[in-house]
C-alpha cells in the first residue's frame, strides 16, 4: 500500500490518496499525511480510487482524521469509493460522519 497526499495551492484543501489495502499497516503513513500540516487545511479529501480493501482499523483511522479535523465541525469528503467500499462505509453508518462519493 502507498499513501500520498497533495495540498491545493493555498493549502486549504488536502487530498490523501490510498493505494491498495487500507488497514493498520498504513496507520503511520496515513497519520503523517494530515498531521503537522501548515497551514492547517479546512477541507480534507480521502481519495479511495486505488483502494481495493479496507477493514475496521481503517474505519478507526478515518475517525482519527475526523477528530483531528475538528470532529463534528470537520469537513471531510471520501471520494471515488468502489461499490464494495461504499457498502462497508454505509454499514458502519459513516454516511452520517463523512461526505461519501
Amino acid at each position: 500500500m502507498a499513501i500520498t497526499s497533495s495540498a491545493s495551492p493555498d493549502g486549504k484543501q488536502v487530498t490523501i490518496f490510498i493505494q491498495g489495502r487500507f488497514d493498520f499497516s498504513s496507520h503511520q503513513d496515513f497519520r503523517n499525511a494530515y498531521e503537522r500540516l501548515n497551514p492547517t487545511p479546512s477541507q480534507y479529501r480521502v481519495d479511495l480510487q486505488g483502494t481495493s480493501y479496507l477493514d475496521s482499523s481503517a474505519l478507526g483511522m478515518l475517525l482519527l482524521l475526523r477528530d483531528h479535523a475538528g470532529g463534528d465541525q470537520s469537513n471531510i469528503q471520501i471520494v471515488n469509493c468502489s461499490q464494495d467500499v461504499k457498502k462497508i462505509l454505509a454499514i458502519s453508518n459513516f454516511e452520517q460522519l463523512f461526505e461519501i462519493y
Binding site: 489495502r21 488497514d23 493498520f24 481495493s52 480493501y53 479496507l54 477493514d55 475496521s56 482499523s57 468502489s82 464494495d84 467500499v85 457498502k87 462497508i88
Partner: peptide, 12 residues
C-alpha cells in the same frame, strides 16, 4: 472486497 474485510477482521 466484503470477503477481504471479513477475513481481515477474523485474522486480525
Amino acid at each position: 472486497a466484503s470477503l477481504y474485510t471479513i477475513l481481515a477482521e477474523l485474522y486480525t
